[in-house]
């Protein structure tokens, strides 16, 4: 069995998530071929073949064409991408062209079937494609990374530019905060109820010497800046301490923080999905618990 892994490129650099895909392939016992559609500064380290494309960093039509060419040559059983902005955009286009089933955001692979989460993590299902061939996107952080080793055999590939005009990256405004470097993070979720309650979360963060994090709904409500957002569309963090206050644990959030060393969640629902990754769940009303903890830590 063979897998085509499609790596992604952001600003001339290969995303390190390729090693998660390599890790998945090795766990599943698959031979790996890698396609990277845009030029990269440093080649990845693995043993196998690397198809190097000369396209833009986002150009679905040309990336699809390159992938189809490689697929025609290599005959893989699986085409694997990350479930990222790049992967979820390209995967259905390939599935459509190939006539294969697509399995989105797989979190595990076990004897031929993939696991996915449904309804915000409250249910989980295991699926496979009817034909056995599949386009799969992997949840970020779900599979252990392969160790970088070896050097691939290179082969160049080329395709015509597509019809979507690339106007460039839009920079996020310069900010001092870099959550990925924080040692400790105290995060607020929808469970804080209203913007006024953010103060007590900030106070706890301050007492602990932690940075303030937030889940997507809190950012979308405009209660805090985007730079505080943890999760697949925010920062992926691995602090020594991650305290999740009123965060139920949407998969996108878990993807951004589950590798933290110590995770303590405060939630009134003991069955909230955050419990899957947390080490401790304090079952309490955070509006009572957080001020009480702050007070105790100050004492």
């Amino acid at each position: 069995m063979k897998a085509l892994l499609i790596g992604e490129v952001l600003r001339g650099k290969l995303a390190p998530s390729l090693y998660e895909m390599l890790g998945f392939a090795s766990q599943a016992g698959l031979e790996s071929v890698v396609l990277v559609c845009a030029p990269i500064s440093t080649n990845p380290q693995f043993t196998g073949k690397l198809y190097q494309g000369d396209g833009g960093e986002y150009d679905p039509l040309s990336h699809k064409a390159m992938a189809l060419e490689v697929i025609a040559k290599e005959n893989p059983d699986l085409v694997v991408l990350m479930h990222s902005s790049y992967g979820w955009d390209l995967a259905p286009r390939l599935a459509m062209e190939l006539g294969w089933g697509q399995i989105s955001e797989a979190i595990a692979f076990d004897s031929g079937t993939f696991n996915q989460v449904l309804v915000g993590g409250k249910l989980r299902r295991s699926v496979k494609t009817v034909s056995g061939q599949a386009v799969v996107t992997l949840q970020s952080g779900a599979f252990s990374e392969a160790a970088p080793a070896g050097s691939p055999a290179l082969e160049s590939i080329s395709a015509l530019k597509g019809a979507i005009e690339w106007l460039g990256y839009v920079e996020k405004p310069a900010q001092d905060l870099d959550l990925t470097k924080a040692q400790k993070i105290v995060s607020a979720g929808r469970g804080i109820g209203k913007a006024d309650n953010l103060g007590m979360i900030q106070e706890l963060a301050q007492v602990l010497g932690a940075e303030l994090g937030a889940s997507r709904p809190v950012v979308d409500s405009g209660w805090v800046e985007h730079s505080h957002q943890v999760g697949s569309t925010g920062a992926t963090v691995t602090p020594e301490l991650y305290m999740a206050c009123g965060i139920s644990g949407a998969v996108q959030h878990l993807a951004g923080m589950k590798k933290s060393e110590l995770i303590i969640a405060i939630n009134k629902d003991k069955d909230a999905p955050i419990g899957e990754v947390a080490h401790y769940v304090v079952v309490a009303d955070l509006l009572q618990f957080v001020p009480a903890l702050t007070k105790a830590l100050k004492a």
Binding site: R125, S126, T129, V130, A265, K270, E276, V281
Partner: peptide
């Protein structure tokens, strides 16, 4: 359908957090 659902259930309690 191109997919076949093999099983559906609640998430496992594996590595479940300690409740306080």
């Amino acid at each position: 359908s191109r997919l076949q659902v093999v099983a559906l259930g609640p998430p496992p309690k594996a590595g479940a957090a300690e409740l306080i």
